[in-house]
């Protein structure tokens, strides 16, 4: 079983975590076309590479961001939202 490191609770087994999805910038809802919006809502990029994703440590309800290399199957780092500097 894989391990994941929660920025607050430390390294825990992956079964304690929930994955939410890749962080993707939404187009401006007021100015984008219907097609652009549909593209954002329905299309995901499955190509392997480094992705930033929302993850939650469920027992403590701690949300954080994981930078993950899906090609190498490796979590590069995890941090709280806003600590990305």
């Amino acid at each position: 079983m894989k391990l994941m490191t929660c920025p607050i609770n430390g390294t825990r087994p992956i079964s304690e975590f929930a994955y939410w999805g890749e962080i993707r910038p939404a187009p401006d809802a007021d100015t984008c076309s219907d097609d652009q919006w549909a593209e954002y809502v329905f299309h995901r990029n499955g190509a392997p590479g480094v992705k930033k994703e929302w993850w939650c440590h469920t027992p403590s309800n701690t949300w954080f961001i994981a930078e993950r290399d899906t090609e190498k199957d490796k979590v590069l780092r995890t941090f709280l939202h806003g600590d990305d500097k």
């Binding site: 929930a18 939410w20 929302w54 939650c56 469920t58 309800n61 949300w63 939202h81």
Partner: peptide, 20 residues
């Protein structure tokens, strides 16, 4: 729902707190 609302509260940074 609680989990997702917690996440949105982090993302939106509104002046409010959520209790389950």
């Amino acid at each position: 729902v609680y989990r997702e609302l917690s996440r949105l509260n982090i993302e939106w940074k509104l002046d409010c707190g959520l209790i389950n």
